[in-house]
Computed example of a mutant assay.
Amino acid sequence: MQKILNNLKKIRAKHKLRKDVNHWIEVVSIKKNVEPLSNEFKKEIQSYYKQFKIPIKKDLNTFKFYKNVTGIEDVHFLPESLFFLEILPLLNNRNLVSAYGDKNVCEVFFPNFDQPKTIVKCINGFYYIKNKLVTQDNMYKKLMNYPEIVVKKALDGKSGGKDVEFLTNINEISVDSLEGRFGSNFIVQEPLKQHASLNNINPSSINTLRIFSYLKQDGEVIILSSSLRFGRKGSRLDNASSGGLHVGIDKEGTTKKIACDVFGKFFTSDEVKEKFANIKIPSFKETLKLIKNNHQQFSQMRFIAWDIAIDEQNKPILIEVNLGGPGIKLGQIDNGPIFGEYTDEILFDLSKKM
Rank of each mutant, 00 (worst) to 15 (best):
K43M: 11
N68H: 06
N145A: 11
F109N: 09
F166G: 03
V97Y: 04
V188N: 03
M144P: 02
K280L: 10
S283N: 11
P36Y: 08
I201F: 11
D307L: 00
I119M: 11
K53V: 00
G244E: 01
K64R: 15
F266L: 15
P147Y: 03
S283R: 04
S351W: 11
N199D: 09
I87Y: 10
K3G: 00
L347F: 14
E274H: 10
E40C: 06
G336V: 09
E345N: 07
T208G: 05
C122D: 00
D59W: 07
S269R: 02
K273R: 07
Q332Y: 09
S184C: 06
L133S: 09
G234F: 14
Q297T: 05
L85W: 05
I170Y: 08
P191W: 13
N124V: 00
T255V: 05
D74Q: 12
Q46I: 14
D137L: 15
I319E: 00
E312H: 01
K233P: 02
H195D: 12
L347S: 06
L224Y: 11
E271H: 09
F186R: 01
F84C: 03
A259R: 06
S184A: 08
G180F: 13
Y66G: 03
Q51R: 15
I279P: 04
Q115D: 03
R210I: 02
F77E: 01
E107C: 03
I328H: 09
E165D: 13
N322G: 05
S299V: 01
T287M: 13
L17A: 02
K132G: 00
V221S: 08
D176K: 15
F109I: 06
K132P: 06
D344S: 12
G324Q: 01
E320Q: 05
V262A: 14
I119P: 06
N33C: 03
N335T: 11
E35C: 05
F230V: 03
D344Q: 10
G180H: 10
E271P: 09
K352Y: 07
F110G: 01
E148W: 12
K53Y: 15
L167F: 14
I129V: 11
L78H: 04
L224Q: 10
P326W: 05
M1Q: 07
R302W: 04
P55S: 09
E312D: 03
Q136H: 05
E44F: 04
I173D: 07
L91P: 07
L330T: 08
D114A: 13
K256M: 14
S235K: 13
N200D: 14
A259Q: 04
A196Y: 13
N335D: 07
S351P: 13
